[in-house]
Each structure stands twice: as C-alpha cells, then as structure tokens.
Design a protein around this nucleic acid. Sequence first.
DNA 1: ATGAACTTTCAGTAAATACTGAAAACAGAT
DNA 2: ATCTGTTTTCAGTATTTACTGAAAGTTCAT
Lengths: 173, 173
Amino acid sequence: MTEERAKLEETREAFVTQWGVMGAQWGINRTMAQIHALLMTSADAMCTDSVMEALEISRGNAHTNLKDLVGWGLIKIVTKKGERKEFFEAEKDVWEIFRRVAKERKRREIDPALETLRNCKAATEGIDTREAKQFYEQMDQLEDFVTFASKISDRVASMKHGNAIKLAMKFFG
Amino acid sequence: MTEERAKLEETREAFVTQWGVMGAQWGINRTMAQIHALLMTSADAMCTDSVMEALEISRGNAHTNLKDLVGWGLIKIVTKKGERKEFFEAEKDVWEIFRRVAKERKRREIDPALETLRNCKAATEGIDTREAKQFYEQMDQLEDFVTFASKISDRVASMKHGNAIKLAMKFFG
DNA sequence: ATGAACTTTCAGTAAATACTGAAAACAGAT
DNA sequence: ATCTGTTTTCAGTATTTACTGAAAGTTCAT
C-alpha cells in the first residue's frame, strides 16, 4: 500500500529533522547530523545527488558534510560495479557509532583540554599566594577528572558490539 | 612579587579562553563557558560588573549568561552583608559540576530524543516492507541505547562527591 | 512619593557559521 | 588528446547566533 510508504517517509523525515536539532545542541553541524540520520535509515547506500535531493541542499554542502562524516568514521564510501560515482553507507550498529564518536571527540577535544590544563598547572606551580594555590588546585581537580574521562573513553572504544551494552546494563541497570 | 601575580592572571586568561573554545565545541555559548571558567577560578564571588570588566563584554551579555549558568546549576547567587548587588559563585567540585551538566543535558536533550524515537517506532510499527522493518529496527536500537544512556546519567547524578571518581577509577583505570 | 542602586529586557547590530552555485580539477573511456 | 561523468574548491551570500547599550523595571531606603 502506498499510504504506508508515505507514512514511512514522513516518519523518517521527522526523525532526520529531530536528529539535526539534537546534533546542533551537541555542537554538530545540523546538516551533517541530518545526512547522518538519512543514511542511518536508508536501506541502501546513497549517492551525493540523492542526498542533495532528499534534503534539498546544494552539491557543495552535501559534499562537505559527507566528507566530514567520513572523517568521523560514521559513514563510508562504497562503489557499485559498473557505476562510476561514489555511494555512501552509514554504520548502523549503535554501539559502534557511539564508540567512533567517543574516540573522535577524545582526540579532538579531550586531549587538547588535558594539554591546556597541564600547561596551566606548570605555569602556576611555584606561586605561593592564596589565589595561585586555589587556581592550581582547581586545575589539578579538572586534570584528574579529564584524565578519568579519557580513560573511560579508551575503555569504551575497546569494547565490542552490543554485548558491551548488555553487560553494562546488568551492571548499571 | 607582582610578576607572579601577572603570571597567574595570564594563565587564568589562557584557561578562560580555552574553556570557551571547548564549550563552543560542545554546543555551549562561548561566553557562558568563559564566565563559568572565570568564576570557577575566582577565589571570591564576583559581581556582574567585575565579570563585564574581566571579559570586556556588555551588561546585557553578562547578565544573560550569568542567569543561564544559574539555570544550569553551575553557579549560584550570593549576597554580601551591607552590599545590595548580587554576586556569583561557581560550584568548584568537579564531580558536582559533571553531575549537574549530566542531569541538565538529560532533561533537555535525552528525554526529548527518547520521545521522538518512540514516536517513530509507533508510527511505523505495523508496516510490512523491508524498508519499514529496517527503519523500525534502527529506531529500536537507538531507543535501547538512549535508554541506557539515560540510566547511566541517572546513576551518575545520584553518586556523591569525588569518592565516586576514585571508586570508578579503581574499576576502570 | 522620590530617588539611588541595581537588574532585566529587547530592538538593532555585529559576528560567526553554514550554504550556494559555478568553475576548476580529476579520472577513466574512447 | 579529448570528452564525459564525477568530485572538489571557494568567493560570495544567506542564515543563524550572539552581543550591545540604552531604556524600562525593580527594590529598598529615606
């Protein structure tokens, strides 16, 4: 029935929109998040033109965000025999998606943050005023915490599959 | 020595700047993150004017972001006897900061996301095509994962103090 | 009731970010 | 070497987001 087809497309569009909103709240380009949602819910790999059409965006925009997604490891390029152009396919396993995002954010954000904190500590190490001691102490606390977060992230990135969820669920849930 | 005082201020400024960059990457207004960094590393509570001066921002901007930070539970308003104006003081315990952020993001983002995913499932539940089944399956996977994240967040929010870090460190580290 | 000290709002503006579309570059196929 | 289908780049533009500053609102002492 064609009504069902419409219903599915409508729901999928709602999801894509919502995923875009969420992405934006987490500091991810809205369009990139939408493309990700689109591919995650696509039964087959899509080419640039299909993405452009589905989201009504320009070639440049589609191109940039597709390549960024590849950079995040969230989608990959596939080719079809006989076809010359590139198609894109999303990783669908949710745990795997989470792992890749965690890994990438660690590399891009946690590691630099640690660097800053260590520099701040080093720069104020010897100063012997109330303010400096307090500042140093705060940097130290933050460093401990971020180091902790970093370790968690590594741990997560080394766990495989949905098994990890089930295991953790038993522990936490 | 006044040279030390300068060194501390310089380092603190570097930290404030960097915290702003980080915040922006995580979808938090840069200025809000900077004010947070400023207050986190302030030995004493600061008034709106001090914040304005330190970051060279307007009254309106300072006001909005200070109130947003209060809304996130990351700073609180304090009053000094004899003084009429409001002063602001940051929560300094890093674990407590993390708890509050986790709690707030859950409320603002995870809960609505769950709602969306459930709607998407409901809307496509009965449809009997390959595409619909795949879509439903993806929404289901995501829902499981987000539910899991939600539980973790609750767990975290109910743990107290830096003890939690040490405990978890033993487990993970 | 008046005014001083302070907070809040918001219309207008500035800055940052994202997007378009067309041109250039590239990669086979002939 | 040229043509065709495709990807990539990027200057210019649009959109979104954040900020300013002044005016209105609030609160409290006199």
